[in-house]
Structures are given as C-alpha cells and as structure tokens.
C-alpha cells in the first residue's frame, strides 16, 4: 500500500484549494428550503462582503490618507490582508450554509468571526498606542 508523500499531499491541496474555496452549486444537493432561509443566508453573505470592503476601505485610508504618525502603513496593510481573507472565505461560507439547509443538517461552524474580532481589536489597540506615542 502506498503511503501519501509530502509532495502528493501538497499537490492534492493545490488541486483541491479552489474547490474548497469555491464549492459547487448547492442546488445540486437536497431540496429547496423555505425561501426566507435562503434570503437570510444571502444577506449574511453580503454582510461578510461588506465587512471585507469596510476593512479594505480602512486599510486604503490608513495607507493613503494618514501621514501623521509612523507605522500607519503597516496597520493599513494588516487591515487589507484581513479584508482579502474575509472576502476569500465568504462564498465558501454561503455555499456550505446553503447546502446544509438543503440537506436539513446543522449549519457549519466557523472560526472566522472570532479570528476577525481578535485581529481587528489588535489593530485598533496598536493604532491607539501609535496615536498616543505620536501625541506625547
């Protein structure tokens, strides 16, 4: 029996990456749920997209508009990286939730809200420290 090597595992991850980020059309499985559930799922997806865009706006604003204190460009880049991750995972969240609804299964849990909360709090604290240092 052949054991999977590191190379085949990496190759499989590369091949499956886009499929994991962009799962297939949920309508291929299960049956249509109550239309209100599908619309609620769609609004949640759009809220994630807007969160990503708000982070991008904050990041671009910090990089381009704030010139008063050192380090603002790193905070801006951190917010932009967070926005990229949030936007990249939002379709997957929508598709997995829609599939779960169609199959009558519990909605899949996600670590993204916790990750986002911790990361944005860290950026907020870091920017407050930078403002305080710059003002003294």
């Amino acid at each position: 029996m052949n054991e999977p090597t590191a190379r085949t595992t990496a190759g499989r991850a590369l091949r499956n990456g886009p499929r994991r980020l962009f799962p297939p059309d949920p309508r291929t499985e299960g049956s249509d749920p109550d239309y209100r559930f599908s619309l609620a799922n769609e609004r949640t997806f759009l809220a994630w997209i807007r969160s990503a865009l708000a982070l991008a706006a904050g990041g671009l604003g910090a990089v381009a508009l704030l010139d008063d204190f050192p380090g603002e460009e790193y905070l801006g880049l951190a917010l932009l990286a967070l926005s990229f991750v949030t936007a990249g995972l939002s379709y997957r969240r929508w598709a997995l939730a829609e599939t779960a609804m169609r199959l009558g299964r519990p909605l899949p849990p996600s670590r993204l809200p916790l990750l986002l909360a911790i990361a944005v709090s860290a950026v907020a604290v870091a920017s407050a420290v930078l403002v305080a240092l710059n003002s003294s």
Binding site: S83, A87, Y91, E98
Partner: peptide, 24 residues
Amino acid sequence: DTPTHPRAAMVVGVGATVATGMAT
C-alpha cells in the same frame, strides 16, 4: 421558485476577493 442565485454569489465573492487582493 427558490431565490438561490449561486452565480451572483460567486461573481460577487470572486470580485470582492480580486478587488481586496488588488488593493493589498
């Protein structure tokens, strides 16, 4: 009919990913 619109979600999801990646 179901209001599910995977193509719209896919376009907006990919579009936002490309836009935020480009912004970064």
